[in-house]
Each structure stands twice: as C-alpha cells, then as structure tokens.
Design a protein around this nucleic acid. Sequence first.
DNA 1: ACGATACATGCAGAAACAGGCAAGAACAGG
DNA 2: CCTGTTCTTGCCTGTTTCTGCATGTATCGT
Lengths: 252, 252
Amino acid sequence: MLAAERRDHLLGLLAREGKVVAKDVAAELGISEDSVRRDLRDLAAEGLCQRVYGGALPVSPAVADYAARQSVAPTGKRKVAAVAAGLVRHGGALILDGGTTALAVAHALPQDLACTVITHSPTIAAALLDHPTAEIFLLGGRIFKHSAVACGAAAVEAAQNVSADLCLLGVTGVHPEAGLTTGDAEEAAMKRALAARAADTYVLASSEKIGTASRFRVLPWEEVSGLITDADRHDAVVEQLTARGVEILTTG
Amino acid sequence: MLAAERRDHLLGLLAREGKVVAKDVAAELGISEDSVRRDLRDLAAEGLCQRVYGGALPVSPAVADYAARQSVAPTGKRKVAAVAAGLVRHGGALILDGGTTALAVAHALPQDLACTVITHSPTIAAALLDHPTAEIFLLGGRIFKHSAVACGAAAVEAAQNVSADLCLLGVTGVHPEAGLTTGDAEEAAMKRALAARAADTYVLASSEKIGTASRFRVLPWEEVSGLITDADRHDAVVEQLTARGVEILTTG
DNA sequence: ACGATACATGCAGAAACAGGCAAGAACAGG
DNA sequence: CCTGTTCTTGCCTGTTTCTGCATGTATCGT
C-alpha cells in the first residue's frame, strides 16, 4: 500500500463516515498506529482534517469530500491554484481557462466565496457544480477534445458578451522572449479572446512550463498582469521575467 | 519489451487499477525498478501521472472512478439509453438533454459511431470527451446547478443556431393528459428550445417517471415523435399513450 | 488520583530515490 | 562494412524518506 493511497483512504473515510479512528484504520490496513497518526498529523497540518484524541474529524462536513479531491492534484499545481484562488474577490467575476491547473483553481475556490465563474471548459463547469455559492456561466462552442474546451468562432463570439475582473489563463509555455504560448492555434485565439474580456489577466504556470515555448503565441508580456508559479523566485528564467516587469506571484 | 510499450502498460495500469507500484511492475515485467522509476518520472514530467513514494497515481481521480461511475446507472436507465443510442445514425446530429438518463445515452453511444452531439450539459460534454469519433458542440449559458445544465436567455439563443436530426429529452414527468413535464420553468423552456431545433424528438423516460406530472409543461404529445421507456408495453399508462398515437419504444 | 490509552519524539533498519557510470544496442555517416 | 555517436538499461553509491519500535509525556475515563 502506497503512502499516498493511505492518505486518500483516510480522506475517503473522513468524507464517507465523518470520522477516522487511528486504531481501527491501523488494524484494517495492517499498519502501525504510529503511521496512521503521522498521516493524520500531516493532513491536519495541511488543513485537511481536524485532529482529535483517538483519531480525526473532517474540518467541516461540507469541505470533506472537496478536500479529498484536492489531494490528488500535484502539489505544485495545488499551490499555484491556491494563490490564484486568493485573487478572486467576493462578488467578483472570474474568467477561468481550461486545463488541469485551472481545474485545481476551481477546486481551490473557498466554499463561501460567492463569485461568478465564466469558463469555456465543461470539465471546470462540472467541477463547480457542487460549489455552494459560485455562479457558473458556460461559454459554448465546438469542443476541442484534446484540451476539453470550447473553441472556434462560436466560442469566441460567446466570449464577446461577457466581462470580468480577472482572467486566469493556463498555457503550455512561458518564455521570456516568446511570451506565453500554447500548442494549438484555435486555443491560442480563444485564450486571447478571454484575456481581452477581463480587467486583469494572470497566467497559471507550474514550474515545468517555465522557460519552454510552444508553437502558437497567446499573448505578449505587455498584456499580462502577472504570472503565478511555484517556480523559485531566483530561478534564472523567473528573474528574466521580473526584469521585464512581469509581476510574479510565487507560492513560496 | 519496447520502452513505449512499457509506458503504455504503465498508463494502462494507472487507468485500470488507479495506481502503479514500481516494485511490482518491475517484477512483473522482469525489468529493473530503476527503469520503471525513470518511466514514471518521465510520465510525471509530461503530466500523465502523479509521482508518489513507491510508485505513481493517476493525475485525475476521475480516470480511476470512471469505470465505477459507469456502473452506477440503474439497469432501467441503461436499457433506455441503449435503445436511444440506437436511434443515432452515422454522421447524424443529436441534441442531447441533461440528466442522468441522457448521461447514460452518452455512455451508450458506440465508440465507432461518428456523429455530432449538441448539448447544454457540461457533464454530458465532459463524459463524451473520451469518445473517439463524436463531435461535441456545447451550448453555453448560465448554469443551473440543481440540474447541471445551461439555461436562460443566452442558452436558448445559442440553441437557435443549431439544427439536428434527433433530440433526446429527459423529463421528470410523463402523463397522458399533462404531457411531458419538469420541475423548473427555465429548464422547461430550454427543453422546448432544443426540441424545436430537431427533426425528431424522443423522450427518455425510465419507468418511475411514467404516470407522474411535475409543475411545468415541456411539450404536448403532438410535438413528440416518441417515447423510450423500460416500462411494460401493457402498462395502463403506456397503453393510454399508445391510444393517443404516441410511438413507444420499449427495451423489452 | 489512578490506570489505561493516546500521543510526540527520537532512533534505527529498510525501502525508495536521484545521479553517475559503464556495457550494450541502435543508429547515422562515411 | 566499419566507426563513432547516441540512447537505453542495469548497477552502484550516497541521500532521503518511510515505518515500526521504544521511551517518556499528556490526556482520558473511572
């Protein structure tokens, strides 16, 4: 049994049964109570459960299963998503791009944050269905399967009818000279259309994207408010971007 | 064993079992753990899996859950869905409503059936993402969370721009006098807008809906081509519908 | 207040890991 | 066909991480 599996198991129990008893889980999985306790301590440190004598309880019943899903996103993306979610203001409107990092942002939106999320990704929309207070507006169009978002003329047209305070874009390449790039021309155009409808545009870029470039340019640096990344602030590429005047929000 | 084969094998395991243990795979394939680890490292770098101590997990839990969720559709709905999927012609266009029965239809579409699916449900769109040949067109608009579909003025307007051969509607009530009904006025309007854009409209109704009526009328019987149900053909209500000239497709 | 249970901490063995190295295979070019 | 290069793969090494046990402390129920 993998350690990560055990963690998921614990979160699953928390969500399903509303509690975890260290002793029982240890017996059930055939591991020592110490390991269970250590796991619970770690989860508690991440705010995923509340430690009590003898075991643990969910932080709050509502967020329990949400937290379980959170845990499967890679740590880097989760941290980037958390910072990004922090930019969303109560009552504000957010344009959210597709992709796994954006999906992590959807999951990271606090349950009590009432806001409007505009997206062209059915996946993101579906993920937000159980958010209690978020208003969801879906931009329609032809679905591009490889990226799971609506693109093309209809989608761009639909985007013209919305406005937002903030746009969070995912890209596949972040490069000092090449700017922000992605692998598909239609997607690039769609991202431009989305960015144009928001007052501020921030780019979500987990560290593996930094310093790479893909075939199609999305936006030059001038049209981007900032970059959210888990890369080190002293990374060579990041420092080049800083020198270019790009605001960098790091997870550190 | 080719390296690419190994990679596929790992991804297959990830999808089927929801995890990969480096040690086990190494033993199974008769290669060193180092090679497995290297592969996993590469896959993780491409975002295809999440590396954990001892092995790897799928990036998205949805992959592992997928098979499980497939099976949760009750037999009745699955049968209705299979019949409905049989109405879709190769190369044809289908307007697919939201709801669990419609979702079952999406899953029941044969993998080799090339067709266009138009839907206002992000859930349905997401479910069709891994269909190899289906073209997906998403109708955007404000998302109504309780039914997980786009409704309202924007969605109705988006619907005006499409046409299809067939529309498959889910409803909550099927009654000889009341016709087809549902619990929300906006949803009812949306369903009407969808039905109006297709040459033929069939209604998906698992047996528990038969003979019941909800608050808002969707369509009268005259505007419906037929009803697909798992109810008995000799059921009293079904016979009344037959008498009214409604075409009944049963799963029997 | 007492025993019992749960807990945190430190420790040591085991397992997993990353990086470097070298042998061998696949490959490209002459 | 030969040669030099590149890539893959397994092995080795030092490091990190995990896990169970032992110890002493804190907390609970009676």
